[in-house]
């Protein structure tokens, strides 16, 4: 393993950026997954139950994205500036989708009219599916490379981002979140809502495995150099191994052992493994330039000053544990099954 990952501020911040990416996928990931299956059941009771399961926590979960964006801005401003301006329309699609999701939660149940609810349900679904897919597409493009020059100016259009491998990675992300969301719902619900979540978990699992295989196949065929890091630093194999273990246990606990409360640990492993695999494959590059290797944005040429990195590291070490502490407290408060009835059952 490259020692500078732990001995330099730039390396540590690369890991921290990965932690925020994983943090977002682990927390908001199950919200997105639960939202993505929303339209596939016509049952109002199930829909409401699912929304109630997400209700108290999605807002805090979304903050992982906001905080992650802020962290990226502070630690690697060039990466932040280039990725957001290069992915201009894609970024705004994510944003509009997240706005739709936020207000759907708030407004869907404000009126007892089927038409009102029908439209908010659609808005809610789009608000979950679009960020889920684009999460994968964005990561895919960063790793596969985009046409940026020495000043970080993007020479392409929205359609430059729609490479097959990147789109496959979008679906990997979507099904990964469905797996995770279904795992969460199996813990939080019972009865027919539980049965539907179980079905969704199987669909998510199958979809994930298929698209993961397709993506790997595509990358091996077209961009084999992306696997170089794993041969250079054998310890990096930890990440794909976590992912594979996650896949194994997801199948084992869901299908073989029927230990439904445990499935979420497996989906968490899948997420941690998948995200880290991509991050480590790309190390030390954040965004690859398809124009010239030397325009790659790396942890060295796009980072903030030593002082800023140090101050942010100290703040993160102080505040992140506190955040995780009260987040766990909130999940404890809302432990237990939910129903479709106002707020929480029993």
């Amino acid at each position: 393993m490259p020692i500078e990952l732990f001995t330099t501020l730039n390396g540590i911040w690369f890991l921290l950026a990965g932690i925020f990416l994983v943090g977002y996928a682990l927390t908001d990931g199950f919200d997105l997954g639960a939202g993505a299956i929303h339209l596939f059941t016509k049952d109002e009771e199930i829909r409401k139950t699912y929304m109630n399961a997400i209700g108290p926590v999605w807002d805090g979960n979304e903050v992982w994205l906001i905080a992650g964006g802020g962290m990226l801005f502070a630690a690697f401003p060039v990466v932040y500036a280039v990725s957001f301006s290069a992915f201009y329309l894609a970024m705004f699609l994510v944003l509009w989708a997240l706005i739709l999701r936020a207000v759907s939660f708030e407004y869907r149940n404000k009126k007892d009219s089927p038409t009102w609810k029908k439209w908010w349900d659609r808005a809610y679904w789009i608000g979950n599916v679009v960020p889920a897919i684009l999460y994968g597409v964005a990561v895919g493009n960063a790793v596969l490379g985009i046409p940026i020059d020495q000043k970080g100016v993007f020479h392409g259009t929205f359609f430059t981002l729609l490479k097959p491998a990147a789109i496959f990675m979008g679906f990997v992300a979507l099904f990964m979140f469905v797996m995770h969301g279904a795992a969460y719902l199996m813990i939080k619900t019972e009865g027919k809502a539980f049965d539907f979540a179980k079905k969704a978990a199987i669909v998510g699992f199958v979809g994930y495995v298929i698209f993961l295989a397709l993506t790997d196949f595509f990358i091996i065929a077209t961009e084999p150099k992306l696997f170089m890091n794993f041969f250079k630093y054998p310890l990096f194999w930890i990440a794909p191994l976590i992912m594979l273990a996650g896949i194994f246990f997801y199948f084992k606990w869901l299908i073989v052992d029927e230990k439904y409360n445990k499935v979420i640990y497996a989906s968490s492993m899948v997420i941690i493994g998948s995200v880290l695999t991509i991050a480590l494959a790309s190390y030390p590059v954040f965004i690859r330039s398809t124009i010239d290797e030397k325009y790659n944005l790396t942890i060295w040429n796009s980072a903030s000053s030593h002082l800023t990195l140090l101050i942010m590291l100290i703040s993160t070490l102080i505040f992140l544990p506190i955040v995780i502490g009260y987040t766990i407290y909130v999940y404890r408060v809302f432990k237990g099954k939910v129903s479709a009835e106002g707020g929480y059952g029993h």
Binding site: G70, M71, A74, P77, M312, S315
Partner: peptide, 8 residues
């Protein structure tokens, strides 16, 4: 960037 990150 730092104050924005600290805000989050």
């Amino acid at each position: 960037g730092a104050p924005l990150a600290l805000e989050g």
